[in-house]
Design a protein around this nucleic acid. Structure first.
Lengths: 249, 249
DNA sequence: GCGAAAACAGCAAAAACTTGCAAAAATAAT
DNA sequence: ATTATTTTTGCAAGTTTTTGCTGTTTTCGC
């Protein structure tokens, strides 16, 4: 394995998890701890990361921003958000789930766009409230501590009384065969209700999550109308999804 | 676990709750109390927080001396929040409105207190979600852009189906004669519904807002069970409220 | 004041870091 | 193709840092 490859891997890990342990790196790269130590020392000297006792951290680590410091991943999400926003138009009533990709959509939304947005996500609601022309309606219910997302009968019930133009579902795990999956049963219930309440279902996902499967199933690919990734629509990575009757963006 | 991670966690906790106990930190970080002690000592030396007997506080937390309006007002609110928290006990189901004083209550809530809290305030909900033992249920509805507060029929309707132990109303404007008043009609509707849904109504207000009146009326003083201010209950400024059948704190 | 809780100091084991060095690999030169 | 040179890598010995534990001293609430 080339040194350059190791360096890239290390930086990816640091950006993804905000921190790495030298032991883990040595383990997954199949090189001695000394080599990893030297690699990290170099990257530290190049100011690409911060070396600390026992491992390394990303630079933004100590800041209190909610963003993950992964600039690669972030720029992918911004790409996706921009494509998604192109689907929106004045006067629409839409549903938005949670997740970091949807957060980017909420943040990047044009100031003059007039929308009505229903959402069960605290963070998305908060971000949308910065836009004067967006009417935000929170779908109340029991909040999940980690995801800051409302779940339960109240949410599902409120959704059953809606018929909106579009439903934008962030992340989740996607596979052409198994469809959309999640690891939280309560979240599934809400997302299914969101899909039922919308005329069109738009899925946002970074290509990393294509072909990954979780425990519980939200819906089949047939329920999806539009799939937005950061890739070019003609990318071969998306071939598996072409048989379905959906728009790739 | 990396030392830097512990430091970040500690600082997050301090900023979030204004103070932390070394015991709690040692517990949630799964390290000995000595390690936490050393961590806090370092952070104190770096002026990132203030070490105190048994724990640490954020800077500005105990600065009652500063006559700079803001900090002074803030510590008044912290005083009120502490008195309010003394009213709470495990297993209670309560309602909390929005406002900065209620935010302090949410932040300073003891980590082990087991509560169920209904709230139409985004900020309060967010702050409460950091407490593992608090179940947070958001009262969904149309969100006000400035107050980040849910209003409208959905909220009032959901409240009409509740019967909770206590309702904690932040600020508002208070006058012995005219009772509780507000400047936003939609907020009134929600607060009235909150009062109806609770067995006891607790009003939090800094003494500056006593004897001030706004356009719309939420309720009479007779509907109030407890009035919490930063003043000593025997303070003559509170004399006007003594004729009513309420507890002064 | 008194007793309990917290802070401190010193110590020892474990983990992590440094340094020097030699083998291995890659690159350059003949 | 072979040799020489440089770089990279792994190892071992020694040093430093970290961490939990032991008493002892200090602090705080009553």
């Amino acid at each position: 394995m080339l040194k350059e490859e190791r360096h890239k891997y290390i930086l990816d890990q640091v950006h993804l998890h905000h921190r790495v342990l030298l032991n883990d790196l040595s383990d997954s790269l199949n090189v001695s701890i000394d080599t990893v130590r030297r690699d990290v020392k170099e990257l530290d000297k190049e100011m690409k990361l911060k070396k600390v006792h026992g491992g390394a951290t990303s630079f933004g680590f100590m800041t209190f921003t909610k963003d993950d410091g992964n600039i690669y991943l972030k720029s992918k999400k911004i790409l996706i958000a921009e494509k998604t926003i192109a689907l929106l138009s004045d006067g629409q009533v839409i549903l938005m789930s949670g997740g970091t990709t949807n957060m980017e959509v909420a943040k990047l939304m044009p100031e003059k766009l007039e929308l009505t947005v229903f959402t069960p996500s605290l963070h998305v609601a908060m971000a949308l409230l910065d836009h004067e022309n967006v009417e935000v309606i929170f779908l109340g219910g029991k909040l999940l501590h980690d995801a800051k997302f409302a779940v339960g009968g109240t949410v599902v019930n409120a959704l059953s009384q809606l018929r909106v133009d579009m439903c934008i579902l962030g992340t989740g795990y996607l596979d052409a065969q198994y469809g959309l999956t999640e690891f939280d049963w309560e979240v599934i219930q809400v997302k299914q209700a969101m899909i039922r309440a919308a005329k069109k279902t738009v899925i946002l996902t970074v290509s990393d999550k294509l072909h990954s499967i979780q425990k519980y199933k939200t819906c089949d690919m047939t329920a999806v109308h539009t799939l937005v990734t950061e890739l070019d629509p003609s990318d071969p990575l998306l071939d598996a999804f072409r048989p379905f009757d959906l728009v790739l963006m």
